[in-house]
């Protein structure tokens, strides 16, 4: 009896939170399915015009491509650095290790505060107005956290396994490659997804570091539906729904490891 009551209460809680969580999303999807210019019309039917329109725009696909390049680029650049750095912090003692806290603290400083000097800097090194600059900014502000997560995963792997391997003649790096990496794979996936989603949603870096229209990323493109000539909410929400699919798909496919990885990365 008591267990059932408890389950009932739990479901009630989930339901209430669920309503708050899903309502805005449902509202967005609903808006995307109403007819364009449907200011007064509320026939309640599902209209796919917005989606058809968005998908017929080569520009939209270009923005998707840019977002994919930026997000995947950030993940691919950050993960190796995070693995190396995280491994060093987890498995070695060395003078100055305490300073590594700075690694955690520095990137927590507000990115927006350093944006203006970073623009000047990017110009000077010739990276301004390239997707590389956007990738770099995402890497800079995500890698340190990734380092700490990787460190957590590696700490959760018993060092004995690694020691056994070294006795068998593996070097430390071989041990990292052959023992720790496969074991920490869920953690890598978690880190990768964390960086992917952060980069996918970021508006500020692309806004600050690029100027050419063909370098725009999705969040910038979405804002274009709010124009001076009336807001196209249907188009905006349809594009936003489509933009939600890649990260959501990635997430659904890998959520088990993601949660596992988060657990290991912050558990210690």
């Amino acid at each position: 009896m008591k267990a059932r009551l408890r389950a009932g209460l739990a479901w009630l809680g989930i339901l209430l939170i669920g309503i708050v969580v899903f309502f805005p999303i449902a509202w967005g999807v609903k808006t995307s399915l109403t007819a364009p210019l449907g200011l007064g019309g509320g026939s309640g039917l599902i209209h796919l015009q917005n989606y058809r329109y968005i998908l017929s725009q080569p520009l939209f696909l270009l923005y998707v491509k840019n977002s994919v390049i930026v997000s995947l680029g950030a993940v691919l650049a950050a993960i190796p650095m995070a693995i190396l750095g995280g491994y060093a912090l987890a498995r070695f003692d060395f003078p100055g290790k305490r300073l590594s806290v700075l690694l955690l603290v520095l990137p927590l400083l507000p990115a927006i505060a350093v944006l203006v000097p970073l623009i000047v800097y990017m110009r000077r090194v010739g990276l301004y107005n390239t997707l590389l600059a956007v990738i770099l900014a995402n890497v800079v502000f995500n890698t340190p956290f990734a380092v700490w997560m990787v460190r957590g995963f590696i700490l959760s792997i018993p060092i004995e396994i690694e020691e056994a391997a070294t006795i068998d003649g593996c070097s430390r790096l071989e041990a990292l490659w052959q023992i720790d990496l496969p074991l920490a794979a869920p953690g890598m996936i978690a880190v990768g997804i964390f960086i992917f989603i952060n980069s996918w949603n970021n508006y500020l870096y692309a806004f600050a570091f690029t100027t050419s229209p063909e370098l725009a990323v999705l969040p910038q493109a979405l804002l274009r539906f709010l124009g001076a000539w009336g807001t196209n909410y249907g188009g905006l929400t349809a594009a936003a729904t489509l933009a939600l699919l890649p990260p959501a798909a990635l997430f659904l496919l890998s959520q088990r490891w993601f949660i596992m990885g988060m657990l290991a990365g912050t558990g210690k």
Binding site: I25, I197, W200, N201, N202, Y203, L218, A243, F251, Q255
Partner: peptide, 13 residues
């Protein structure tokens, strides 16, 4: 998993 959706949506959206 489902509760993570708000985090996946871009802030501007």
């Amino acid at each position: 998993t489902l509760f993570l959706l708000p985090w996946i949506i871009a802030p501007v959206v």
